[in-house]
């Protein structure tokens, strides 16, 4: 297996290789052991300073990155757009260059504009990690999802994974599709036609609008959140109707002749895309995903910090 990543930045899954993904997953399993020790900290990145720059709201990803950085002994500074000079009209590049002038080695960035981290990676020397750019990519989420599936099944190749819900607004969906396909899984997307991107078939995924058929097909159901904050127009009549046709609940799962794994990147709209009895059931690995998220982010930071 290769020893280092082929990239200096983690901008998306699309532009990294299958070997890169496997190196990250492999390294993450070492870090999963570290975060289960009595002392959950190693000194690998003690000479590195990392800026977490979040221009969009986040709970899980920001905490997960911050914890991963602290577990690796890096120095961490946090920046969120609200309450900053961005509100006074400072440009993205100026903001980041000012932060980098304080001798920062890596930048973890979430931004509402597609391609913002790519733009940044062309103009600054620091390593950039994309923590979500608009509706484009969210690579560490896809990596932790793949890690969680692999942990349960031992392999990803040949597994059938269906992504349910709001595919149109989801960066998790796109990164997951790239990642799962590179690792040899079959991918389906399922949701109301209005929430499926028009050219989704070009990505070589199966498309299904009937929830029961999709559930019957898959081994893993990765359920996405309905992103009401990104929906500027009405894509479905009411949340109640969405829950009725596309909500996954226990009775639907009991009608299947097999057991499937339930995943959700969070935050869950309980009772809309996923009912509470499914989210909290033994088939759900939602909290494993959160734990694995820290290990995956430690692996990404460790491997990128090792690049020139």
């Amino acid at each position: 297996m290769q020893k280092k990543l082929s990239v200096r930045h983690l901008l998306g899954i699309k532009n990294i290789t299958t070997d890169d993904i496997e190196l990250i997953l492999d390294t993450a399993s070492s870090f999963k052991e570290v975060i289960n020790r009595p002392i959950k900290k190693v000194p690998s990145l003690r000479d590195i300073t990392i800026a977490n720059i979040f221009f969009e709201n986040s709970t899980r990803t920001r905490l997960s990155f911050e914890l991963a950085e602290k577990r690796l002994s890096a120095d961490v500074i946090n920046f969120s757009a609200s309450g900053s000079s961005v509100k006074k009209g400072e440009t993205l590049l100026d903001t980041v260059n000012n932060i980098l002038a304080m001798k920062v080695d890596m930048v973890v960035m979430r931004h509402s504009s597609v391609g913002a981290p790519h733009f940044l990676s062309r103009h600054v020397k620091a390593h950039i990690i994309n923590a979500g750019d608009g509706t484009h990519e969210h690579p560490t989420q896809a990596l932790l999802d793949a890690f969680s599936i692999k942990e349960k099944f031992g392999t990803i190749a040949g597994k059938k994974v269906c992504i349910f819900g709001d595919i149109l607004h989801s960066r998790v969906a796109l990164s997951n599709i790239f990642c799962l396909q590179k690792l040899g899984a079959e991918v389906m997307v399922c949701g109301p036609p209005t929430l499926l991107p028009r050219y989704i078939k070009d990505l070589d995924v199966k498309v299904e609008t009937n929830l029961n058929k999709a559930l019957q097909w898959c081994d893993v159901a990765n359920v996405l959140r309905i992103q009401l904050e990104r929906q500027t127009i009405k894509y479905f009549p009411t949340l109640r109707e969405y829950a009725l046709y596309y909500g996954i609940n226990r009775s639907r799962l009991e009608h299947l002749d097999k057991e499937i794994l339930i995943m959700h990147p969070g935050p869950i709209n309980r009772g809309i895309e996923l009912s509470s009895d499914v989210a909290d059931s033994k088939h759900s690995i939602i909290l494993d995903q959160v734990e694995n998220g820290v290990a995956i982010r430690m692996a990404v930071l460790y491997l990128l910090a090792g690049m020139p």
Partner: peptide
């Protein structure tokens, strides 16, 4: 016990050091 993450020559080499398994099932 795998000492990789505690080494002082991390990033002194061309590629990051590859860790091995740590398995210490006791305190």
């Amino acid at each position: 016990l795998d000492p990789t993450f505690h080494r002082d020559d991390f990033r002194k080499k061309d590629s990051p050091l590859r860790p091995n398994q740590t398995f210490v099932p006791f305190l």
